[in-house]
Design a protein around this nucleic acid. Structure first.
Lengths: 237, 237
DNA sequence: AAGTGGTCTAGACCACTCA
DNA sequence: GAGTGGTCTAGACCACTTG
């Protein structure tokens, strides 16, 4: 790989490797070729290949293990499903919850939806109404909005009750950052029924947008939840 | 620096540099010696020194600038003050708020305090009652607990109204991770008065412990806040 | 014993900053 | 133009894993 462009060589190697992983040349949980072979293949020095692989590891795309090899991470792995969830059980583990989808509709995006998901006029969205439970107890009611352009035929592919990490993986999309806004609220009649609390009980209202790795909004969710058996925890590094 | 221990050389170099920075050998906003000089000084290769410096940069201890040098970061810098704050103004910037301290007391730690701050029996704490405001509007009421052992003579040093980043810096302590638990609540009479909301209004209750870089609990805070002009936002990478 | 990634070395050249 | 960090090379040896 001769350095035609102005971008650092190790970045170019990283991108080439990331693309080949995304295209499925190396499957999740298998190894990529070793450093020497990759270096020869790309025509760069082993040090440059190493730097590219270290970058990929820091991005969570591969895992390197001394004496074993460099493994491709599975983007649909269960431990990544709770990546955007801040709920923790009393025991302290992250909880994603079992998803039950009540309703799926397809419609033209409303003004709010167009703004939050940065959609053009007339673009369509899927709207999902869901309940999340932990150990059989409902704790969260959510309204999820997904752009049809990113996830065509989502209901037909039976993905309406899957978490976004699984859905994105099915469509070959890499997820990136998310921002969630938290505010206090009181349970509406519908929320009270779904979550088994009294109407007007104190609840958390969560408003979250998840972006793809390249910055396109992939999901807007507004959720209402109780925190009786659950903790909403935020970690700062 | 001959490698006597089993730890990687670049980690030893990193630790030596971190210690000399902590001891004040190089002051904040000044540069440390260049890579070649450090390498010669430690008796290691430039590549090893570089790896140590890159590590320090990833930890936020220094900032490297091509053509300029490697600068020591100021742990009391204002942009770090909001490190543990998740409040954002309507305009989108992180907000730390102006602190007004209502009361400072010193006492033996209660059972709760001993547990949260991992203190031994009979250890003492400072308890601070505070209000935080943004643009003159109170938005948060907090009860802060600090171990006297970590911050002796805090009130005498006029640090009771400073944020923990400034306090820690004054005591030469490096701060590390923090965990905040968020739950919905209703305003007590006292909270209602302080925050100018009606009694029983929906508020957020924040329960946070901040650790030092070496894992000792440095602050336990329980806060009640309104989110009328403020957003509590959580970012996931 | 063979193969992998992790550490370490000792250079070269480039891009950027500033006097 | 001198000095800095950033990139890149081409090796050596070590620690760990597996057959």
């Amino acid at each position: 790989m001769t350095n035609f462009s102005t971008r650092p060589l190790y970045i170019q190697v990283r991108d080439a490797l990331a693309e080949r992983i995304a295209l499925g040349e190396w499957k999740p949980n298998t190894t990529v070729p070793n450093e020497m072979d990759l270096a020869r293949g790309f025509g760069v020095s082993p040090g440059t290949t190493r730097k590219a692989l270290d970058l990929l590891e820091s991005e969570g795309i591969v895992t390197r293990r001394q004496g074993r090899g460099t493994f491709v991470n599975d983007p649909a792995a269960p431990e990544l499903a709770s990546r955007y969830s801040h709920f923790h059980s009393a025991a302290g583990e992250r909880v994603i919850g079992e998803i039950k989808t009540l309703e799926v509709t397809e419609a033209k995006a409303s003004e709010d939806e167009r703004e939050r998901l940065r959609l053009a006029r007339d673009e369509k969205v899927y709207r999902l109404a869901r309940i999340r439970s932990h150990r059989g107890k409902a704790f969260l009611m959510e309204d999820v909005v997904l752009p049809v352009a990113l996830f065509p035929e989502l209901p037909e592919r039976n993905l309406a009750s899957s978490g976004l990490t699984v859905v994105a993986s099915a469509y070959g999309l890499a997820l990136g950052k998310a921002v969630e806004s938290v505010s206090p609220g009181t349970a509406s009649l519908a929320a009270a029924k779904a979550l088994h609390v009294e109407e007007g009980a104190a609840v958390l209202v969560l408003d979250r947008v998840i972006l793809t790795r390249d910055g396109r909004p992939a999901e807007w969710r507004v959720a209402v939840c109780k925190t009786n058996d659950m903790r909403y925890k935020v970690q700062s590094a």
